[in-house]
């Protein structure tokens, strides 16, 4: 994850409390989604950014995962995301995201 974004995530977690935050991702592939999810839960796996070694344990989802999709107004989801859902490998994204949440999320 971009270093500046890591810094902002850390600041917001400090300011609002990690339990009040949900991170929503839009990554193009499962692996990239998994890396971003790991960064905001267990720390930056690339050891480059401000979240290196910081275990925030934030709740994190990809916008195409059913948990999030089900809470979004259907018409808006259809207008904003639905066509891209055909392009992305949503199953792969779910397979990458689920174990990371199970292992590292502290607030679910």
């Amino acid at each position: 994850m971009d270093l500046e974004n890591q810094k902002r995530v850390k600041e917001f977690a400090d300011k609002y409390g990690a339990e009040n935050i949900v991170v929503v991702l839009g990554a193009a592939e499962g692996e990239a989604a998994g890396l971003a999810a790991e960064t905001v839960t267990n720390g930056d796996p690339t050891f480059a950014g401000p979240l290196t070694g910081v275990q925030l344990g934030l709740s994190v989802f990809h916008v195409c995962e059913p948990e999030i999709k089900d809470e979004i107004d259907e018409a808006v989801y259809d207008e904003q995301i639905s066509m891209m859902e055909m392009v992305l490998d949503v199953d792969d994204i779910i397979n990458e995201m689920t174990p990371i949440r199970e292992d590292y999320c502290k607030y679910l």
């Binding site: 193009a28 592939e29 990239a32």
Partner: peptide
């Protein structure tokens, strides 16, 4: 692809194709 950004042209073609279906 190894960087997690996918196959960018293919994603574009799928979008254009999906639009064609629509």
């Amino acid at each position: 692809k190894p960087a997690g950004a996918g196959d960018v042209p293919l994603a574009n073609y799928k979008m254009i194709g999906a639009l064609a279906v629509k």
